[in-house]
Amino acid sequence: MSARDEILARVRRAKGPRGVVAVPREYRAAGTRGPGDPELFAERLRDYRARVRVVDPDEVAETVAAALRDRGARRIVTAPGIPPGWVEGFEVVASTVDVDVLDRVDAVVTACHVAVAETGTIVLDHDAADQGPRALTLVPDHHLVVVRADQVVAGVPDAVAALAGVRTQTWVSGPSATSDIELERVEGVHGPRTLEVVITRAGV
């Protein structure tokens, strides 16, 4: 017996009988936790220091305009599929991936594909017209997202199921932040410093 075989034999003896160990696989699955709770979603967003406004569907345009004005925004960029009425009265820059242009706008306005109540996460589909290319939401300092109540799901498994076939995604949980340096939280290092979310109520 070689030294290698002897070592492996000792390891096998030390490990004992080679019985099959049952591994519990009671993972959460899509649909097991019911519908998403928009109120919990809003609470989680606030935990992340996001700004949250909950409104009726017919109040979206005036709420988006008010949120932009409150931040002093004048020059904005939007995903190409955003209704023009949401940003009426502002200087709107055409959707672009030009970083120099995006760095000079005051805010970006998009919709989303799905939102996760449990984690306060918003997921963008960058092939969708109302969400636009990825650079659009990574460069401007202020990102305003409109989320419908029916887009809010309970947990991550539900979001993954809703994202089937979506090729280019960004998962957003609060404003961009890092604590890499001396565990001090710094916002806006690699994305928007301010995340603002307008949630529309269901059944109105």
Rank of each mutant, 00 (worst) to 15 (best):
A3C: 01
D5E: 15
E6N: 07
R10N: 07
R12S: 07
G16Y: 04
P17R: 14
R18E: 14
G19E: 13
V21T: 14
V23R: 13
A29I: 10
A29R: 15
A29F: 03
A29C: 07
G31F: 00
G34D: 06
D37L: 02
P38T: 10
A42K: 08
E43P: 12
R44P: 11
L45T: 06
R46P: 03
D47I: 10
Y48N: 11
A50Y: 01
R51K: 11
R53V: 13
R53D: 13
V54F: 02
P57M: 05
A65M: 04
A67C: 13
L68I: 07
L68H: 03
L68N: 09
L68A: 08
D70Q: 10
R71I: 00
T78P: 05
A79Q: 08
P80R: 13
G81W: 05
I82S: 01
I82H: 03
P83W: 05
P84W: 09
G85I: 00
V87M: 04
E88L: 00
G89M: 08
G89K: 04
F90W: 06
F90M: 02
V92M: 12
V92G: 07
S95C: 12
T96C: 06
T96I: 01
D100K: 15
D100M: 09
V105A: 03
D106R: 05
V109Q: 12
T110E: 05
T110W: 10
A111F: 09
C112H: 06
A115K: 06
T119M: 05
T121A: 14
I122S: 10
L124Q: 14
L124V: 07
H126R: 13
A128F: 02
G132R: 05
G132Y: 08
P133I: 05
P133W: 03
P133E: 08
R134W: 01
L138I: 02
D141L: 09
L144Q: 13
L144A: 04
V145K: 09
V147A: 02
R148L: 12
V153S: 06
P157Q: 14
A159M: 12
A159G: 11
A164L: 13
G165M: 14
V166R: 14
R167D: 10
T168W: 12
T168F: 04
T170P: 04
W171H: 11
S173C: 09
S173A: 15
P175W: 06
T178H: 08
D180Q: 12
L183W: 09
L183F: 12
V186F: 01
V186C: 03
E187G: 01
E187T: 15
G188S: 09
H190E: 10
P192E: 10
P192I: 11
L195S: 11
L195D: 12
V198S: 02
V198I: 14
T200Q: 09
G203L: 14
G203F: 10
V204P: 15
